[in-house]
């Protein structure tokens, strides 16, 4: 049992990891096919896992209803919506007034998706604007030197990205320097600098760290040093 639970997964992780690594450098048909094969396996496993997911979802909500946990009424909605969509998609007959095939455009399934699911999804996304406003309000309070810098940078970015920024810049007097003409206030230039110099530098620094960390964690996993993801800690 220990072998099946501990050593075999480590061996599989090692062989698969090293194989995929070597495959990256060998552009032959066999190596491409090998990768294709692996990806197919992944798809098959994910397909089975979807069933587990559905079972987990139903089990979770059933239990919630049975135990009458807070918000259990929503579980009724979830299960009803789930059943309705399943029925609309797999019903062995056509729904009057809808397309002939149950999954195609114009079908009840499609109608439910387009006129309930997508609007709800869009609503959720559009709420983001208000959340950004509230988060920005908190972040831009000039409580410290760093927060003040953030506030100033944010104001420049916001003004620089709207048409009035251009108008303000063009209304200010100009001066010549090194043969070029500059505006005293030039939001476009400033936003460009903010994005391309400090922002890009910080982002690249973070990304460099992330990529190196990813290589390190891959090595740890391939060589079986990191095993937490298999359960059982060290």
């Amino acid at each position: 049992m220990i072998f099946l639970k501990r050593q075999l997964p480590i061996i599989i992780a090692f062989v698969a990891g090293i194989m995929m690594w070597i495959r990256y450098y060998i552009p032959s048909e066999v190596s491409t096919n090998l990768e294709d094969g692996y990806l197919e396996w992944v798809r098959i496993i994910v397909g089975f896992a979807a069933i587990l997911g559905i079972l987990s979802l139903l089990q979770h909500h059933m239990l919630k209803i049975r135990m009458k946990r807070p918000g259990f009424a929503f579980s009724y909605v979830t299960i009803a919506a789930f059943a309705l969509m399943m029925f609309a998609g797999f019903a062995p007959f056509n729904f009057p007034g809808f397309a002939e095939k149950n999954m195609e455009t114009g079908s009840l399934f499609n109608w439910l998706y387009e006129f309930t699911f997508i609007p709800m999804q869009a609503t959720m996304f559009s709420v983001l604007a208000f959340f950004i406003a509230s988060a920005a309000f908190r972040a831009f309070r000039a409580r410290s030197m760093e927060a003040t810098l953030l506030l100033v940078a944010a104001i420049i970015m916001m003004v620089g990205r709207v048409p009035i920024g251009d108008l303000i810049s063009n209304a200010t007097p100009t001066f010549m320097m090194f043969g070029n003409e500059y505006h005293f206030i030039d939001f476009e230039e400033w936003t460009g600098w903010l994005l391309n110099v400090p922002n890009a530098a910080a982002k690249r620094g973070i990304l460099l760290g992330v990529y190196l960390s990813q290589i390190a964690i891959s090595i740890r996993i391939i060589f079986g040093i990191e095993r937490t993801y298999m359960g059982g800690g060290d």
């Binding site: 896992a49 559905i54 993801y229």
Partner: peptide, 19 residues
Amino acid sequence: RDPVVQTVAQEVVKEGYAT
């Protein structure tokens, strides 16, 4: 959000509690 992640997470947490 992902059933595979859920399955693994269950296993990991179970093991964490057992440890």
